Amino acid sequence: MTDRPAANRLPFILPGFGMGTAPLGGLFEAVSDQEAAATLKTAAEAGITYFDTAPRYGHGLAEERLGRLLAPSAGTDPVISTKTGWLLRPRPDGSPGEVITDWTERGIRESLEASLIRLGRSSVDILYLHDPDDYPDEIRRTAYPAVRKLRDEGLIRAVGFGMNHSGPLASYVAEFEVDVVLIAGRFSLLDHEALTTLLPLCAKTGTAVVVGGVFNTGLLADPSPGAMFNYRPAPAEALERARQCRALCDAYAVPLPAAAIQFPLLHAAVNSVVLGCRSAAEVTANAAAARFPIPDELWQRLARAGFVPEQLLDERTG
């Protein structure tokens, strides 16, 4: 997977493949410090230079580990994105406590300042407003103006929105000047929701697009009984569809994860795909899948079966 220097608002090029750090914060199961260190070391060795994190990932643990355990690179500095809109409130004993929303300028600044301390950085490349689905008035009045100020001050290089639903995200892109969006789970082999409004709008506005959740919480990595689909146990219909998709990939000797990872980049508006990794083995497997050659015939077969929108292949060949 190569970097895609598509025309957009960003003052830098987003690597085509990045690593999400929610697993390093203990998403679904705990990860030891040693495992986290090995994961980040392997990512650096694999040439991964984009890392996405957030205060809510393990109540600051993912950010702290990324800042402490990611070894300095001898080449280009990595691209780092984090998120804001939620404040961490520890208990008196110092253990993780509650997470509260705060879209005020003071709250946005406090969140970023704490993130920078955990990351050991003076600035980050992207600051996403994190899951602001239900807060359009607060975003309009205080949060968006606040992140614009942070960009003007050089504390961040790009303003973004990160969400799990493409409709509200498209509304924000239409209303504001947004440098980049992170859409999770809504543009995959099993879910084409983002194609209808968000991606065409981003192409028009020059908003860069990062796609996460390409495995839909695991189902497209391994469609076995007990697999998760969008953070819940996979229903029978989704499990069957994933198995059908895997069978088509098997017929071309292509691993299902390879098709799942590379699918979003069929759309010209998509700049990068980020994958959460909890181990060195996952980093190695995902990096290999991102580079695995996929024949055009397989994309065409997946399109006939409804896993790939036909228009993507028409645009690709046109």
Rank of each mutant, 00 (worst) to 15 (best):
L220T: 05
R304D: 06
G154A: 10
R243E: 15
F28H: 14
P23H: 02
D137N: 03
V211M: 05
V181R: 04
P11A: 08
A253G: 03
L248V: 14
R141C: 00
T84E: 03
G318V: 07
R91N: 15
L61N: 00
A221K: 13
E64I: 00
L40I: 12
I13N: 06
P78Y: 02
A253N: 10
A46Q: 13
V308P: 14
A71M: 12
K149T: 11
E63H: 13
I48N: 01
G18R: 00
R291M: 07
K204F: 13
W299N: 12
R151K: 10
P90Q: 09
A287T: 14
A43D: 03
P11R: 07
M1N: 05
P293F: 05
T42K: 15
F187A: 10
A114R: 15
D125P: 11
L275R: 05
R56F: 01
E240K: 03
G60R: 07
A36G: 02
F307H: 11
P15W: 15
A170W: 11
Y57S: 00
Q262N: 14
D77Y: 02
V147P: 01
A234K: 00
A260T: 06
T76P: 01
I80Q: 05
A74I: 01
A54M: 00
A54S: 14
E64G: 00
A260E: 08
R89Q: 12
G16W: 01
S111I: 06
L119H: 14
D3C: 10
P168W: 08
L313G: 00
T53P: 00
G306M: 13
F51I: 03
D77C: 10
E153M: 11
A30P: 01
G16M: 01
D93P: 13
L219N: 01
A22G: 03
A158W: 02
V283H: 14
M1G: 09
K149Q: 12
G60C: 05
L195D: 15
V124N: 14
G162K: 02
D250Y: 09
Q34M: 05
S272K: 02
A114M: 05
H192I: 10
A7L: 11
V214I: 14
K149A: 13
P5E: 06
G318F: 06
A46N: 09
A253L: 10
L155Y: 03
D52S: 11
E63V: 05
T197Y: 15
A44R: 12
L201H: 10
F17Q: 13
Y252F: 13
L275Q: 12
G160T: 06
L275Y: 02
A37Y: 08
Q300F: 00
A247L: 09
A143H: 05
N230Y: 02
L169D: 04
C202F: 02
R243V: 15
R304P: 01
A269G: 10
R109E: 14
I48H: 04
D191R: 13
L69P: 12
L182A: 04
P223I: 11
G94T: 12
V209G: 08
G154N: 14
E110V: 04
G60L: 02
V283Y: 15
L24C: 03
L199C: 10
P23C: 03
L189Q: 09
Y50N: 08
A7C: 02
E315Q: 08
L199T: 09
D152I: 01
S171H: 09
G26R: 06
R91K: 15
H267D: 14
M19H: 00
P257D: 02
A221C: 12
D102G: 09
V124H: 08
M19V: 11
R106Q: 10
M163T: 06
P233A: 04
A43K: 04
I156S: 09
